[in-house]
Amino acid sequence: MFGKCRGAICIIKITYISVLYNLSNMVNLEWYRTFTYVYEYGSLTTASQKLYMSQPGVGKQITALEAEVGKQLFERTARRMLPTEYGKFLYSQIAGFIEGLEKSEQKFRRGSSKNCPSIVVGCSYDFFHQFILKKLPEINMFLTFKFGDMEELITYLEKDKIHLMVSDREYTGYDHNFSLIAESKLSLYASKKLYDDAPFKKMDNTNAKEIQQWLSNQLWYAYDNDLPYITDFWKTNFNSRPQIMAKYVFPSFRDIVSAMSAGHGLAVLPDYIGKNAVESGVIKPMFMDNKKPNCKLLWVNKRTTNYHYEINLLTNALNIK
């Protein structure tokens, strides 16, 4: 077929097929996407903002692509990234391909039809298992879940890698919208053996100092090294910060419960987790007459999101209370 071509047209067709072949076999297709953004905006800074990447990261991808194709793609100036002739030629060959890829990605993310939209949700594994897993058969949507800690999920949300996330508290510094899912309490729970051996069963004003000292000497399980739940419990009951260090830190409450059931120690858990474990007989509640701090669960999304319809559809379908 190509033998019948003449001159530049033949060369362009062959090169186009070569480019597509390389695109499918290259180590990183994102290099080409980054190249098109730098070409179109003429700036590493603007391209990095549009791609939600660091400027050095964009620069490294351009350098890597130049090394791969063996050609200089841009002339670097103080203010602009000016494409070379080869850069212009490469852009002319791949721009349509990248544009089509992004349209396909967008179409896939939003589902194959209006009757079955899609959304990406970020949450903890505990939340997924407790509130979502059993309801999945009732939800007519394409759903993708990403698990992570708060810092990771906030980053995912800012970079549009997820469209909706679950948080246990409001935070500042981002243009995010918060809406209440449910409220619970934070309670102190003990392994069965520690509960049986504990010298205190109740907490009141007469023994608060002794209990605080006893608690400080115990082995603790925690969800985070910052000890947010233990700190909330401590401030509410003793009006001070805990002077303890968790021996075991786990990425999920369910892991904490599992470890406590076979071990010896204490943990502060949301009651929606703790009560189920108590009913199963694997841990015991401590000082049920003490003051319990509140624990919230919140939906979080970017105010500028294009997924309001999908978010409302999912949250209404889950109907968590």
Rank of each mutant, 00 (worst) to 15 (best):
Y223G: 07
N205E: 12
F108I: 15
T172W: 08
L194A: 05
M141Q: 05
F253G: 14
K235E: 12
E279C: 08
Y189W: 03
N239K: 14
L298D: 09
R241S: 14
M260N: 08
A198S: 14
Y221N: 04
D271F: 06
G263C: 13
A78T: 11
L20V: 12
L227M: 05
E66L: 01
T63K: 14
A277D: 12
I244F: 05
R241D: 13
L269F: 13
Y223K: 12
K185W: 02
N316E: 10
K135A: 11
Q212P: 02
R76W: 01
H176D: 01
E102H: 11
I211S: 00
T305S: 13
V27F: 05
Y272K: 01
A95W: 12
N25K: 14
S216D: 00
R33I: 05
R33P: 01
S179A: 06
R303S: 10
L157V: 08
F74Y: 02
Y248T: 13
Q106V: 15
P199S: 02
E66C: 01
G274N: 03
L194E: 06
K60I: 11
G59S: 02
D160Q: 14
K275I: 15
A222G: 08
S240W: 13
H264Q: 15
Y307I: 03
D224K: 07
M150G: 14
K296E: 13
L298H: 09
P242I: 07
G59C: 02
S240D: 14
I119R: 00
G7W: 04
R303L: 11
R110Q: 10
L180T: 00
L157C: 05
V69G: 03
N290Y: 09
K291N: 15
S167M: 07
D196K: 11
E68G: 03
A78C: 02
K291A: 15
V38C: 01
K201N: 00
V121L: 05
T304Q: 11
R33T: 15
S43C: 06
Y86H: 09
K88W: 13
K192N: 11
P242T: 10
Y221W: 02
P228G: 07
A182H: 08
N312P: 00
F35W: 02
Y32S: 07
G87F: 00
P199D: 03
I14R: 04
R110D: 13
D289E: 13
Y39R: 01
L298A: 07
V69E: 02
L51C: 04
K161Y: 11
S216G: 00
M245P: 03
K103P: 06
S191W: 04
I94S: 04
T46E: 14
D289W: 01
Q212N: 05
L65Q: 00
P242A: 06
F128A: 11
Q213D: 07
I9D: 11
D168A: 08
K107H: 13
A277G: 11
Q55M: 03
N316R: 14
A182Y: 06
P56H: 08
L269R: 10
T63W: 03
P83Y: 13
I311Q: 03
P56Y: 09
E151Y: 12
F127W: 07
T84M: 09
N294H: 14
K4C: 07
Y174T: 09
T45E: 15
K103I: 15
N237K: 12
Y39I: 00
K302L: 05
I244L: 05
T172M: 08
Y16D: 10
Q93R: 12
T315L: 01
V249L: 06
S92L: 11
L318R: 04
Q130W: 13
